[in-house]
Simulated assay, not measured.
Amino acid sequence: MDNAVRVLSTLALKGAVHNLAGHYEATGGVRIDADFAPTLALLDRLRGGEGADVVILTREGLDDMAREGRVVADSCVDLARSYVGLAVKAGFAHLDIATEPALRAALLAARSVAYSRIGASGILFAQLIERLGIASEINARACIIPSGFTAERLVSGEADLAVQQISELKQVGGIEVIGPIPRELQTPAVFSAGRVAASAKAAQADRLLRFLASREVAPVLRESGLEP
C-alpha cells in the first residue's frame, strides 16, 4: 500500500470517489485505497485507532475529529452538499412528495419504507416522521437497516420506498429516484474532508484534498447526486 493514499469515506461520496479514482491516478496522483461506511461508524473506527490518510465525513463529524486532534484542522475542506431523497423500484409510479401533506400521504401509503439506523439520512428521517406524527405507523412496518444502501430493499421487494442521501440511492441499480424530501423539511448535510493527523503521507494527502475540492471535480459530484 506504499503507493496508495488510504481514504475512509462516508457512503454518500462512494460514487464520486470511485468515478474520480482512475482519473486522479492517471494524471499523476497516487492510487486511492478507499473504504466506505456511515459517518458514525467511521468515527468509531478512527477513535479505535484505525489508520488512514484522508477522511471524508459530515462536517460535524470532521469537526469532532479536528477537536480531538485526530484530523488536522487547517487541512479541512468542504466538498459537497447533499439532500435526502426517496426512491422506488424501477418502473413503479413516482408518488407526489413535493409538499409536506403529499409526503406524509406517500409514506403512509407505502407497504414498507426502508431507511438506515445510523446514517445521517436515517437520523433525519426518524426525526421527520416524529414531527409529522406518523412515526408509530411507519416504524411498525419499516425496513430499518443498520447500514448500507436502503435502495437495495426496493430491488429485493422488501420495501416500496427507500430513504437516503440522493447520492447513496443512485449507487443502486434497478431503482429510480423520485426526488428530494421537501427542502423546507430538511437541513442538507455538508460532507467535508481532512488529513488524518497521524498520516505518514501528508504531502500526498494534501494533494488529494486539493483535487477533491477543485472545480475539476464539481461535474462528477453533480452527476453522483451531490451539490459541489
Rank of each mutant, 00 (worst) to 15 (best):
R6G: 05
L11W: 08
L11A: 10
L13A: 06
A16H: 03
V17D: 00
H18G: 02
N19V: 07
L20G: 03
E25R: 14
A26Q: 15
T27F: 15
T27K: 14
V30C: 11
D35Y: 14
F36H: 07
A37T: 14
P38E: 13
R45D: 12
G48M: 12
G49W: 10
D53M: 08
E68T: 08
E68S: 09
E68H: 10
G69R: 07
V72W: 01
C76Q: 13
Y83N: 15
L86W: 15
F92L: 09
L108G: 03
A109N: 12
G122I: 02
G122Q: 07
I123Q: 07
F125V: 01
A126Q: 07
I129V: 08
E130N: 11
A142R: 00
C143L: 02
I144W: 01
E158W: 08
K170T: 15
K170A: 14
Q171Y: 14
V172Q: 04
G173I: 14
I175F: 08
G179P: 03
G179E: 10
P182F: 06
Q186L: 07
A189F: 14
S192T: 03
R195D: 07
A200N: 11
R207F: 06
F211A: 04
E216M: 03
P219Q: 00
E223T: 00
G225Q: 05
L226M: 01
P228Y: 05
